[in-house]
Each structure stands twice: as C-alpha cells, then as structure tokens.
C-alpha cells in the first residue's frame, strides 16, 4: 500500500534578501549572499521549497578582544589587531560567507573612536574582502546614532546589512539605511511581541519590507536556547501562515553567546573531566548554531573556524 503524503500547505513565504552588491549593481563585491525565501518549515522538503541555504557570517572586531579565551584567539592571533586582515583571513582561510564587522571600538569604554575612524575601518574591510558585510554597532544608542550615519555613507552602494534597530532606538538607523540602500536588522530582547513591533515601527518610516532581517537576542546551548528556538519557531510558523510582518530572514548571534558559556570558555586545567577545550568550545558553538538553524535561522554569526567548518558541513548535508 502506498503511504499517503502528509504535507502541510503554507500560504506565505519568508521574504528573500540579497546582501551585498556587485560592480554591476553599484557596489564592489565579487559575491553576494541571498537568504530567506523558505516556503515551508526548515528542511521539510515535502512541504515546499526550503529557500536559500543558511549563511555563516564570521565576526570581526575592531577592538582587540582581550576577554576571549586563548583557544578562540589562537586562529586569528596574527591579525587580531587589524580588522581588514582578520576579515580577509575569515574569508580566505575559514570560508566565511559574510563578515560581520562589530564596531566595538566606538564604545566609550573601548576606545571611544570617532565616526570617521569607524568609517575608515569599514572602508578598509570592504577593500580587503570580496564578500558582503554586516555592520554592527556597539549597542550603545547614543554612540551608534552618531557613528552609523557616517559608516552607512562610507559603505553606500554596497548593500550591507546594518544592525540594529530597537524599539527605543530605531529612527536614525532606519533613516540612514533607507538613504544609503542598506538592509536593516530589527532587534528584540527574546520577545516576539516586541520583535513584531519593531518591524512595524521601521516599516512605518517607509522602510521596505524586503530589506529587513530579524534578530532575537540569542540564547546559547544551556543558556536559554530553548527560548530562542521556540520564539524563532513561532515567528516562522506565523510567517508561513500569512503574517507579512513576521516573514523576514533571521540572524542569530551564535559565537558571542556560545563563548560566554562556561562549558566553552573554561580552561582544561579547571574542568579536566569535560574534555579538551580545543574540541569542547567549538562543539558548544556548533551545537548552538545547528540547533538554531533547525529552528529556521538564516544567518548565524560565528567565532571559531572549527565550528564554522562543522556547521558548513552540516548545512551542506541538509541542503544537498
């Protein structure tokens, strides 16, 4: 007897977004990255088209991360104080699909660099790599609002993804992304209702719905990943059921969150029974990423090259 096909019918799809612009499109990227487009729940091919493959963005900081564990610093030790070279290494050696440039150094506690200096950093990274850029502020509203206009202007035409717009601070970044043709990240603190509200606020300023990426602050494995997962799951089901204000690709801050966990950052001598940190740390990051990819996350921000390689392989296997 033939088994009946039990397929769900979905009425809507996740919007598709291309990050980066080639020369022909007014930018200077050799590669662009397209995410989203899913017409069904993640990787359930019998329900419909699963959309574009998830992309891996590797974080590059413009401020030497002295608080990072040695295991995390080691692969980039030679370039850790030069964002452009660090970015190039991530692309050339570690296979990053995108670079997420985190402008930590503009934070008053981390150097308080000027908008102009930040813009120069952005330009240098754009010159060093051929992949699209995600540009992330220091998450201090006032400083981000000073810096992001300059940074956005410096990257005009490159169709970057800029982060982020939050419920209490969305107007400046929305305006500059709109003016300079970038896409925008809308942030919420693990709160689906606020997430939707920020999308509405941004769209009320005339921002096109096909240039939005959602970001729910990520919880790592063991530290609230189930909250992130269930919010993400609910967002995706709403999107597929017809809620256009939820039908956006999603980004997740995996590296930062996974490496905050003691399971990843504890040194071998302190927790001998947990196994070698060389494997343990990247594994923590890998499982955080793959779990969230299963929930429908489209872009994962990552740290360790070993975790990146493992997640890449996982995505290959899921999408081949």
């Amino acid at each position: 007897m033939a088994l009946p096909v039990v397929a769900e019918k979905w009425s809507n799809s996740v919007k598709e977004l291309t990050i980066g612009a080639t020369q022909a499109e007014g930018g200077t990227r050799e590669k662009t990255v397209t995410v989203g487009g899913a017409k069904c729940v993640p990787f359930i091919e019998c329900d419909g088209e699963t959309g574009n493959r998830p992309a891996i963005a590797m974080d590059v900081l413009d401020y030497v991360p002295n608080d990072w564990p040695d295991i995390l610093r080691k692969p980039i030790e030679d370039v850790i104080d030069e964002p452009a070279k660090w970015a190039k290494k991530c692309v050339d050696e570690f296979g990053a699909d995108l670079i997420c440039l985190k402008l930590d150094s503009i934070h008053p506690d981390k150097g308080d660099k000027s908008p102009e200096e930040a813009a120069d950093t952005v330009k240098s990274v754009l010159e060093a790599v051929n992949v699209p850029l995600i540009i992330w502020g220091c998450e201090l509203n006032d400083k981000d609002n000073q810096v992001m206009p300059k940074v956005s202007e410096a990257a005009k035409g490159e169709k970057c993804l800029m982060g982020y717009a939050a419920q209490d601070n969305y107007k400046v970044i929305t305006a500059v992304c709109l003016a300079d043709g970038h896409s925008i990240i809308t942030q919420a603190p693990l709160d689906i209702n606020i997430g939707k509200q920020v999308n509405i606020l941004v769209s009320e300023l005339g921002f096109p719905l096909d240039r939005i990426v959602m970001f729910q602050s990520t919880g790592a494995l063991g530290y609230g990943i189930e909250y992130t997962y269930s919010i993400q799951e609910r967002e995706r089901l709403a999107a597929l059921s017809g809620d256009n204000l939820m039908a956006f690709p999603v980004i997740s801050n995996v590296g930062f969150e996974a490496w905050r966990a003691k399971e990843a950052k504890a040194k071998d001598e302190d927790v001998a029974q947990w196994g070698a940190q060389e494997d343990r740390g990247p594994m923590w990051e890998t499982i955080t990423a793959t779990t969230l990819i299963q929930s429908g996350v489209d872009i994962v921000r990552m740290y360790h090259p070993k975790a990146v390689a493992a997640v890449k392989k996982y995505i290959d296997e899921l999408t081949s």
Partner: peptide
C-alpha cells in the same frame, strides 16, 4: 490568530 504587538490594530488591518 496572529502575534500580538503594540500596533496590533494596524498589523491586523494589514493582514
């Protein structure tokens, strides 16, 4: 039936 947000009247109408 749809996800709450503070602007739910607007969101509902857009649906």
């Amino acid at each position: 039936s749809f996800i709450y947000s503070d602007s739910f009247l607007k969101a509902g109408k857009s649906m």
